[in-house]
């Protein structure tokens, strides 16, 4: 029983990270219908930037975290402004855009390897929060941080998108670009805001994850794929589904690591992704509110 609970908690903590990755992916998808294959690289950047700022530059953790998030957000903004805006104006062929974002992902990975080296770096935990022990089951301090950050960011995003004029205009931007322009948000601006948000979210998730799984320039591929898996399992375009999907993938992975074989845990999320894509493209969570493309 204790083992099961412990496994579930580990899964939920990692699932929060996947959920945040999926959330960024979803925000971009909802704004521009783009599947951003570089989304995982935002998480990689968050981790690597945090490691660099905290370890190499010896900055205080809070400042390092801020830098990591800002760096990833800036990357997202630049990517949209310098590359995607132009490409989207030239071609709407989804395959071309997919390969374009793959190119960006490769370039970011390469740039990170050049700038920060190819070593796996470990980052200390954020501390401050205690390690909670209930019976024989414990929640690590960093795990509490992660759960707390996910709760905070998702609440803020929920408020922003559903309660404010800005959020309504953002949502309208993808469905009715002209109407959105009347509300003050042009499609181009909405795209840039969405990609910046995705960068920030990814950077934050990657930085939160770094103390428990180390920062490494090649992390982006798997983290990105798991973010996709979460977003697809939750129903592409559904932000709440993205978080639920993330938690689900985290728990399933953790269960398979605990009870089947730890080495195969990475494969489980990917198999789930393939099965959902083929059998239930509207997602596992909730009813199909998403229009299929």
């Amino acid at each position: 029983m204790d083992t099961l609970l412990q496994i579930l908690i580990t899964g939920l903590v990692v699932g929060c990270i996947y959920g945040m990755a999926a959330l960024g992916f979803t925000i971009v998808y909802n704004a521009t219908k783009l599947i951003n294959f570089a989304n995982g690289e935002f998480l990689m950047l968050g981790g690597v930037l945090l490691a660099c700022a905290a370890q190499a530059a010896k900055l205080p953790m809070s400042l390092a975290l801020l830098l990591a998030v800002a760096g990833a957000a800036l990357t997202g903004w630049l990517m949209q402004r310098c590359i995607l805006d132009m490409a989207m104006a030239r071609s709407s062929d989804p395959l071309t855009l997919v390969m374009l974002t793959i190119g960006v992902a490769l370039a970011l990975r390469g740039a990170a390897a050049l700038a920060f080296g190819r070593e796996i770096t470990f980052v200390p935990e954020f501390g401050l929060l205690p390690l909670v022990l209930i019976g024989n089951v414990y929640i690590p301090s960093q795990g509490l941080w992660i759960i707390f950050v996910l709760a905070l960011t998702s609440t803020v995003l929920w408020y922003m998108f559903s309660k404010t004029m800005f959020g309504k205009a953002m949502r309208a931007a993808s469905q009715e670009p002209r109407a959105a322009a009347l509300c003050g948000i042009e499609p181009k601006r909405a795209a840039a805001i969405a990609m910046t948000l995705a960068g920030a979210l990814g950077g934050l998730a990657g930085a939160m994850l770094a103390p428990i799984s180390a920062a490494f320039y090649e992390n982006g591929i798997f983290l990105g794929l798991k973010g996709f898996a979460a977003a697809v399992a939750g129903g592409l375009g559904n932000p709440i589904g993205a978080i639920v999907g993330g938690l689900l993938i985290g728990v399933v992975e953790s269960l398979s690591a605990g009870y089947v074989a730890s080495g195969f845990k990475d494969a489980v999320g990917f198999i789930l992704l393939i099965l959902v894509l083929i059998l239930r493209p509207q997602g596992l969570v909730g009813r199909a509110i998403v229009t299929r493309v």
């Binding site: 390969m99 793959i102 490769l106 370039a107 990975r109 740039a111 390897a113």
Partner: peptide, 8 residues
């Protein structure tokens, strides 16, 4: 990777 990415 950087070069491949930019070329792509």
């Amino acid at each position: 990777h950087l070069i491949y990415g930019l070329v792509m």
